[in-house]
Simulated scan of single mutants.
Amino acid sequence: MNFVQIRRDLHRIPELGFQEFKTQEYLLSYLQSLPQERLQIKTWKTGIFARIIGKNPRKTIGYRTDMDGLPIVEGTNLPFSSEHPEQMHACGHDVHMSIALGVLTHFVFHPVDDHLLFLFQPAEEGPGGAEPMLQTDIMREWKPDMILALHIAPEYPVGSIAIKEGLLFANTSELFIDLKGKGGHAAYPHLTNDMVVAACSLVIQLQTIVARNVNPLDSAVVTIGKINGGTVQNIIAETARIEGTIRTLSVESMNEVKKRVEALVKGIEIGFECEARIDFGSMYRQVFNEAALTREFMEYVRSHTDMNVIECEKAMTGEDFGYMLEEIPGFMFWLGVDSKFGLHHAKLCPNEGAIDKAISFISKYIEFKGNQS
């Protein structure tokens, strides 16, 4: 099987969260082409559950991959660039899916004692597919006893993985703030309540939260990535919208940051005589790697594969796989793909040599776990 070609096929058809219809169709077509004697397939929204029946099952091992793309105009100029305008696999989920299919294919032909459950999860980039996927009847019936997942890492070389016990990724929350004042003619500002000015003032104030409200021994990030306001140059804006993200290393800090956001927005309402609405959108739990399983995985990879294992630091990235790790023991790791451009960049270009390497060493580890007495 050519899983690099599969990656390229998937790269052409990126789709946003819960819109992964072509992606699901492609994956199902491939899965249905495999021998079905031990393979059970069920769909949920745009996601897929695929279970391989074990030869002498005592437990179920789970493997999760995400499916969705990002609203980014691709800038790679690759011959297999996105065919969907303003959508791109700029976070590597095409690579993730091709690896998952490679591992699954291996075990269709070489089953282990235990059941294996492959989760093709939609909407990781938003609004979040992991939490509702966990709540399905399918998951309750086939729930794994342990679970693992990977995420590509452009900064690490091919042939390496990076991982640590405990906290790997941060708690994250979206942030949307809508302001409504009173618009009017640019020549008569005294008769208006300018929401562009209000939004600019609020953005500056939000940047004080981490500096002055978070314990300096803790870590938090408040980033504003988008502002919309106004219509033309000579009309004072009646509305404005601010969009951003909050990231913290503890749930307690997340709660405190949100309280401070609410207080600052209340001050803007009073000071600029406007109305404001806050939406914290989707919140993702921290990715916390179970210590014993993580240590065992690191030791196995070091001893039985040619992969280089790097003990990395925690990162402020977010991943809704954290919801799965709250309920199921397991871990996530970074997979080196050696790209000049980073995650969420229009020119992200993972080294495809990482795909077959990942399929090989993950299959070896799952074989070890799936036949473990």
Rank of each mutant, 00 (worst) to 15 (best):
Q207C: 10
T43D: 07
Q121G: 04
I152H: 11
S82H: 08
G128T: 04
P154C: 11
D194F: 02
H304E: 15
V309L: 04
L348V: 06
L150D: 01
W334Y: 15
M332V: 12
F341C: 13
L175D: 12
E269L: 01
P122S: 06
I278C: 02
T239A: 10
G47P: 06
T294I: 00
I13M: 14
P111T: 02
T294M: 08
G318A: 13
T317D: 11
R302H: 09
K347T: 02
G225A: 13
G17I: 08
F49L: 10
I355T: 05
K258I: 10
L167D: 00
H93K: 02
M97D: 05
L206C: 06
L31F: 08
E296P: 10
Y26V: 05
L39P: 06
I268S: 04
T46N: 03
A162P: 03
F272P: 04
A198E: 11
L191F: 13
I72S: 03
T46E: 01
H84S: 03
V4G: 00
T248W: 00
I53M: 13
I328G: 08
D338F: 05
I366W: 03
G102R: 03
V309W: 09
E25W: 06
K340M: 09
D356H: 13
Q36A: 15
N228I: 12
K55H: 12
M133F: 09
L28K: 04
Y284E: 08
E326S: 15
L148Q: 03
N234R: 14
G166P: 06
T223I: 00
G229Y: 07
M283F: 05
S360T: 13
R140E: 10
E326V: 04
P85S: 10
F321M: 07
A220W: 00
I99T: 01
A199V: 09
C91D: 02
R260W: 00
P132W: 00
G342A: 13
R12F: 07
Q121T: 09
L343H: 08
I224W: 07
E83M: 14
D338L: 06
T46M: 06
Y284Q: 06
L116R: 05
S363L: 09
H11A: 13
M146Q: 15
I53C: 12
L31T: 10
L27T: 12
A187D: 13
S373Q: 12
W142T: 07
A220S: 08
G128N: 10
Q207M: 07
V309F: 11
E165D: 14
I236D: 03
L116I: 03
